[in-house]
Amino acid sequence: MNNNNLYQYILGIADNSLILGQRLGELTGHGPSLETDIACTNMSLDLFGQVRSYYQYAAKIAGDGRTEDDIAMLRKERNYLNVLLVEQPNTDFAYTMARQFLFDVYHFLFLQELQKSKDLTLSAIANKSIKEVSYHQRFSSDWIKRLGDGTEESQKKMQTAIDDLWRFTDELFHQTDADKSMVSEGVGVDVTKLKDTYYKKISDILEESTLKIPESKYFQKGGKQGIHTEHMGYLLTELQYMQRAYPNMEW
């Protein structure tokens, strides 16, 4: 098996959790209620926990002396492989929950399949993570319903967020060459097969939340090739600050 493909494949999974965890971490202490504050911090914590398992494994595969932190914090922007969806900013609580929901539903379906991976480390990580992600999915779905079917104002805000973030959903189902090669090895998940179930699940919940399912067929992509939105550089600036300002130190 080509180790570089496996390495790239792991990054493709882990970078999503890293960047989404970072976004959620921005909100700690600033949530609309103490309970949502605790929940968002907790989701961030879960995601970073997953990230550590993935990068520790990636560091082992790379075998060039790099650590989990080097991989997390010392790459150039073009080498981060997360989807565009997760790097979108916390414009307001509707955007935060819409982003979470659109990712969680995918993430859960993805981990269900990754549990069956021939790669025992990946299947073990998936096994552990899916319990957490099932909670994330419940939390974000509940908020879609509350805000969608809440007040007139909240419905409008939630609809705007869903409409705006919709264009980033299709990329979740794109495959890179590394992805394809890992699928053929029985290691990776064939995400193209998740697409119908994903949109069905999303549509059901949007409908239940009295929200309209966006009709636009124009989608954005690029994250999986390392071409990100303009938000990404600022996010990385914070994420990498200490490692860049104080190179080669232990913390």
């Binding site: 911090t41 997390a72 130190m249």
Partner: peptide
């Protein structure tokens, strides 16, 4: 939180601040 120097420290800091929210609650 967003600038913690390592993943280990970031996780510990998130957990700590979450504990504080829990104490408040």
């Amino acid at each position: 939180i967003t600038r913690a120097p390592s993943l280990r420290r970031k996780v510990a800091l998130l957990a700590k601040v979450q504990d504080e929210a829990g104490h408040g609650l």
